[in-house]
Amino acid sequence: MKKSSCFVVACLFSLGLVAGSAAAQTTTPNPFGGTAQTGTPAQTAPAPKKAKAPAALGTGQFASEAEAKASCPGDTVVWANLSSKVYHYATAKTYGKTKRGAYICEKSTAAAGFRAAKKEQRP
Score class of each variant (00 low, 15 high):
K2G: 12
K3T: 13
S4H: 13
S5W: 06
C6Y: 06
C6P: 02
C6L: 14
F7K: 15
V9A: 15
V9C: 09
V9D: 10
A10G: 15
A10K: 12
C11G: 08
L12E: 03
F13L: 10
F13M: 06
F13E: 07
S14P: 02
L17A: 15
L17S: 08
G20H: 07
G20T: 10
G20K: 09
G20W: 09
S21E: 09
S21V: 03
A22S: 13
A23K: 15
A24V: 02
Q25M: 11
P29K: 10
N30L: 01
N30E: 01
P31E: 00
P31Q: 05
F32G: 07
G34N: 04
G34C: 07
T35L: 01
A36E: 04
A36H: 01
Q37L: 13
T38C: 03
T38G: 00
T38K: 02
T40D: 07
T40W: 01
T40M: 12
P41C: 04
P41W: 03
P41S: 04
T44W: 05
A45T: 14
A45E: 08
A45M: 13
P46M: 08
P48C: 08
K49R: 13
K50L: 11
K52Q: 11
K52I: 01
A53K: 15
A53S: 11
A53W: 01
A53D: 03
P54M: 05
A55M: 10
A55F: 01
A55P: 06
A56R: 10
A56Q: 11
A56V: 00
A56N: 04
A56K: 15
A56T: 01
A56M: 02
L57G: 03
G58H: 04
G60A: 10
G60N: 15
Q61C: 09
Q61V: 05
A63W: 03
A63Q: 11
A63K: 13
E65P: 06
K69Q: 14
A70G: 13
A70W: 03
S71M: 07
C72I: 06
C72F: 13
C72H: 15
P73L: 09
P73R: 12
G74M: 04
G74H: 06
T76P: 07
V77L: 06
V77I: 15
W79V: 04
W79G: 03
A80K: 08
A80R: 07
A80T: 14
N81D: 15
N81T: 05
L82G: 09
S83M: 05
S83R: 13
S83A: 14
S83T: 15
S84K: 15
Y87D: 03
Y87W: 11
Y87Q: 05
H88S: 10
Y89V: 12
T94R: 07
Y95L: 00
G96P: 08
G96H: 04
K97G: 06
K99L: 07
A102L: 03
Y103H: 09
I104P: 00
C105Y: 07
E106I: 14
K107I: 06
S108L: 09
T109R: 00
T109Y: 00
T109W: 00
A110V: 01
A111G: 12
A112D: 11
G113T: 00
G113S: 08
G113K: 09
F114Q: 06
F114C: 05
F114G: 06
F114Y: 15
R115M: 02
R115L: 00
R115V: 09
R115C: 01
A116S: 10
K119E: 03
K119L: 03
K119R: 12
P123V: 03
P123S: 04
